[in-house]
């Protein structure tokens, strides 16, 4: 590109911030795993993983700037996985044998 520096910074500034946030979240998740929280451990770890996925999707995969259609496709994957979990567990959580 022609007017150099300004543009080069744009290349890595946003993703760099996201990268640092991801590393930080990862560290928190790893540390929390050693606290005796019982079932809370899994909840915290999965909660942080969900936040990490959100950061990754929004910033690095650029979902925040994408058209509605792409967001719908991404949401569809999520929605169908919820169907899968909900109905599969409708069996396993109601078994009494």
């Amino acid at each position: 590109m022609t007017n150099g520096r300004q543009d080069r910074r744009y290349l890595w500034l946003g993703p760099g911030a996201a990268w640092l946030i991801l590393l930080m979240l990862f560290a928190v998740s790893l540390g929390s795993a050693y606290l005796p929280l019982g079932a809370g451990n899994l909840a915290v770890n999965l909660g942080i993983a969900a936040v990490m996925l959100a950061v990754l999707a929004a910033v690095l995969m650029d979902l925040r700037n994408s058209v509605a259609l792409v967001r719908i496709v991404a949401a569809a994957g999520l929605f169908w996985i919820i169907i899968m979990f909900a109905l599969t567990f409708s069996d396993f959580l109601t078994r009494h044998y």
Partner: peptide
């Protein structure tokens, strides 16, 4: 169509609640 698959499993050992839902 994605939410009905359990009707293939009414006698497979699936729970009665799931039978009802599917």
């Amino acid at each position: 169509g994605f939410m009905v698959w359990g009707h293939h499993m009414f006698v497979a050992g699936q729970s009665p609640v799931a039978d009802l839902i599917f």
